[in-house]
Design a protein around this nucleic acid. Structure first.
Lengths: 180, 180
DNA sequence: GCATGTGAATAGGTTCACAGCC
DNA sequence: GGCTGTGAACCTATTCACATGC
């Protein structure tokens, strides 16, 4: 039931029903939802009913942590290439992949059908690599660089900015202390 | 001017002015804002005009990546302790810190005045550690575990869920392809 | 009878546009 | 003259409440 889904999702039953109604009608009145079917429908809507080919750009510590994060593959995000500009790292093998140099980037994206990149490089390099990725056909970017990437609007970008997350905590705590 | 701030923040001039008006009046009509002063005011409002003491809970790859991320310290978030439950890791030294076992957690939080924790442990362990952190006096949690932490409402939690970020990209791309 | 799906009502947030002040 | 700060208008999102259909 929407009530149970809401409890799990930290929201309200009405919200669940209204959100679902944007995409269709998935339940049965008087009964609720059949979970397997609903899940399958949502997976299709979100687009995670098929694997996605991902390239990791930046083989630093964040890149490594992400590369070894098993949940990615488990959820259908398959890392098919790693690129880094550090000559020390190029040629190194991680798992079943060899780290490539940035000059091969376009070739890799095209030949391996890379759809998404995880951009985990220092700020200054990020914009150029993002632009090259988009030109090479990448369709979306998960960006860890603390800059606002300038890419065409058709290419979605999700920013992960850990400093801002911590600052959100600092703000919430500071506010609460002031109110008290 | 609000116009310039908006351009940098990917928003509109009216939005910038309205947002600032929530906290006070910071500009001069006809002139715009004095950047140094505005920045100082905002830092005070957000609560980042002083350092914050942070403990890292979970010394896996994500923990390591975060620990070595220099921007944290640069922005005033100082890691004062590391906790992990792996006996192999306890006693290991990272930088100037020795990794401690979870049984010392409460002592550490109290004696070192830990205000925030970065929770980078596997899902199952996260809830218990979060609860213990809160009981020990932690005021906010940056949560990397893919679960919804159950903590009192006075303790803000920021979730970082990379799978959901990737899924947001998959959804945006899938939607765009459907519309086309 | 019971829970969905959905119009209507409400709340919240963004944009407009201009009075007020430098 | 020029830009802020802010009510008013607008738009979007959430909540309510009930008709609908199993």
């Amino acid at each position: 039931m929407s009530e149970e889904l809401a409890a799990r999702g930290q929201t309200t039953a009405a919200q669940v029903r209204k959100d679902l109604s944007h995409f269709g009608s998935f339940g049965k009145r008087g009964l609720g939802y059949r979970v397997r079917e609903l899940r399958a429908s949502l997976q299709r809507i979100i687009g995670v009913d098929r694997p996605w080919r991902v390239a990791l750009v930046g083989a630093g510590r964040i890149g490594l942590a992400l590369f070894e994060y098993p949940a990615f593959r488990a959820r259908g995000y398959e890392c098919v290439a790693i690129v880094d500009s550090d000559p020390e790292k190029i040629g190194t093998v991680w798992g079943n992949l060899t780290i490539r140099g940035p000059e091969e980037f376009e070739t890799i994206v095209a030949s391996l059908d890379v759809e998404l990149i995880i951009l985990a490089v220092p700020g200054p390099a990020a914009q150029e690599l993002a632009a090259r990725a988009v030109d090479a056909g990448v369709k979306g970017i998960l960006n860890f660089a603390p800059i606002r990437l300038n890419v065409p609007p058709r290419v979605p970008v999700e920013d992960v900015n850990l400093i801002m997350e911590l600052e959100a905590l600092s703000f919430a705590i500071t506010q609460a202390q002031r109110d008290a």
